[in-house]
Amino acid sequence: MLGVNDFIGYYDWTFEFIRRNFGEDDLRKYWEQAIAKEAIKELYDTIAEDEVLAMVRHWAYSAIGEECDAHICFSGDYFRYDMHSCPSLGFILNANRKFYHDYCSHCVGWIRPMMERAGWHFRHQHNHKGQCWFEYRRKGDTEWSKPGELSGQKDVRLRSDWNEDECDTSQSED
């Protein structure tokens, strides 16, 4: 009965179900245990060894499958993802039915524990309007790129509607 065409809507509802019944800590546990370790198991299990190759496999597949307007660039030492139109947040905003207070935070929720375990740093910003960026670098390398340095004009930070003051910023512990 439950399908994937409206998954994003009840995924967001699920965050609120867990938060209101068990609290924010349990919600973070859900993102780590259920999403990172189980739903995205292939990436979780291979990222430490395959590094950027595993990231490319996962995010290229999901960007196409989820029909994201996104740009990916990478080398052996970094991976950068610029999201110009997030279809997941778009689903929620279009439906005008928001259950959890910050849907976007689920990405950091599963990415943070996975990257920290694999020995990679991450930095991320989202503006709550469907634009965000992630950058992953090896531990010890925390020279985050300047706008346009890696992804050129595809860097979301160069958009005329990007406003740092509206963004939430997250990064892994040094």
Binding site: V4, N5, K41, E67
Partner: peptide, 8 residues
């Protein structure tokens, strides 16, 4: 956006 990757 009916992405099969959401079933897991």
């Amino acid at each position: 956006m009916a992405f099969e990757g959401f079933y897991p």
